[in-house]
Amino acid sequence: MATSVQLTDDLERFARDCVDAGRYDTVTDVVRSALNLMRDVERQRAEFNAMLAAATAEADRDGVFTAEEIFAEIDAKRAGER
């Protein structure tokens, strides 16, 4: 499947600089690499949003603790260890 992409002058120059520097063989390879990075970022964003939704559901189900409650529990455990 062939797709034609129009780049701004700045992006075209950047892509050609990447090729000229030997990091990529063609501008197509530069664009393909950029799209792969975008796909990875989107996957990471989706995973983060799923984790955040799970944490929110857990907090709604089980409740939450304030920082003061957590620090008080830590202090109490430390005092009991002495």
Rank of each mutant, 00 (worst) to 15 (best):
T66F: 05
F14S: 10
A72W: 00
A2E: 15
N49K: 12
V19D: 06
R43T: 11
L11E: 11
L11V: 01
D29C: 05
D40V: 09
R61A: 10
R82N: 05
D10C: 02
V30F: 10
T3F: 05
E42M: 07
A34V: 13
G80S: 14
F65G: 00
M51F: 07
T56C: 05
R43N: 09
E81I: 00
L52C: 12
M51H: 11
A59R: 15
A59V: 10
R43E: 13
A46M: 07
E12N: 15
A57D: 06
T26C: 06
I70N: 01
D10N: 03
Q44V: 04
A55L: 14
G22E: 09
C18S: 08
I70L: 13
E42F: 02
C18E: 12
Q6Y: 13
D75I: 00
V64T: 15
Y24A: 00
G22S: 02
D75L: 04
E81C: 01
L37P: 02
R61E: 13
R78M: 02
A76H: 12
M51R: 15
F65W: 08
F48H: 11
A21K: 03
Y24E: 04
C18A: 09
V19G: 07
R61Y: 01
R45M: 07
D10H: 06
G63Q: 08
R61D: 10
D10T: 14
E73S: 12
T3C: 05
A54I: 10
T66H: 03
N36D: 14
D25E: 15
E58K: 11
E58P: 02
T66K: 03
V31R: 00
M38N: 14
V5E: 04
F14N: 11
E58I: 05
A34L: 15
R16A: 01
D29L: 01
A57K: 01
L11R: 15
